[in-house]
Write a protein that binds this DNA or RNA. Structure first.
Lengths: 145, 145
DNA sequence: CTCAGTGCAAAGGATTTGCATGCCG
DNA sequence: CGGCATGCAAATCCTTTGCACTGAG
């Protein structure tokens, strides 16, 4: 999905929830698109100096509620945010256990499909209703080795 | 691994790091064994009233450092703790998106093996060195449906 | 006896909220 | 114009830390 499509989709999502697509929220979406992976509040504030911390928190919460953004917590104390999967495509995360940075990666379709089948099998008898799966690789990024 | 084996292993891990296996730490290990999955600090304190909050935090940190315990963060604001995988066996988590509760589940060996192969393939060109994988299913637990 | 472990209370730090102001629709 | 979004600063809440005390070896 290109930048324009994302913008249209976010507009629609916000509108559907009776929310405005203000300048601050648009800046946030642009900043999120610029990263190689999920970004922390600090990284977002550094990306665009016109953003104010409390508004960033508030707007990310709203963008998450309308389904435009996903909040991620890894292991360190900073939450990270990225555009929702239906805007970016299904993917997973490479989490560096040293510096905490997170990058995206994908699995091929066949692997994803067989994974999903295995999940259904495994969860069948637990009474658990699967909505999504989350898969991360933890290790050392190129910078930290 | 049964209760006795876990106890011996934790003793060894602590000893190796010049740490004592005190009553408080033993209570913590017992409490962790009693759960169906990772437990929050609050749940641990409720399990055993003789535990003090600050000591629980401190001891969990130490148990994590020596490799006896793993700290998990899901989506809500409470960290969760469980015994390390070499004490409990490799497993994954069912995370309830409604109440936040976490339960354990496992995949069969063939699926795990093919997963690992897919990871190596996917990470090969990223310069990322895989240390572990983390896989969670997010959905609705039996209580929350 | 000594020193690590403990518990209480106070401090930290990411996140949240109250309130006056300004801007979008 | 009216109300929602904004930004500042103060408040929250999980977690960490200082300090005096206790207990294990």
């Amino acid at each position: 999905m290109n930048e324009q499509d994302v913008d249209n989709e976010v507009t629609a999502l916000l509108h559907r929830a009776d929310q405005r697509y203000t300048r601050g929220r648009r800046r946030l979406v642009v900043a999120l698109q610029s990263g190689e992976g999920p970004l922390t509040i600090t990284q977002l504030l550094a990306t665009d100096a016109s953003l104010s911390q409390s508004s960033v928190y508030r707007n990310l919460t709203i963008l998450e509620e309308v389904g435009a953004v996903t909040r991620i917590v890894t292991h360190d104390d900073f939450a990270r945010y990225e555009l929702a999967e239906h805007l970016t495509g299904h993917h997973h995360h490479l989490i560096c256990s040293s510096c905490g940075d997170v990058a995206d990666f994908s699995l091929d379709g066949r692997t994803e499909a067989s994974l999903d089948r295995a999940f259904q099998r495994a969860a069948k008898h637990t009474g658990f209703e699967i909505q999504a799966h989350r898969l991360d690789l933890v290790g050392a990024c190129a910078n930290c080795q």
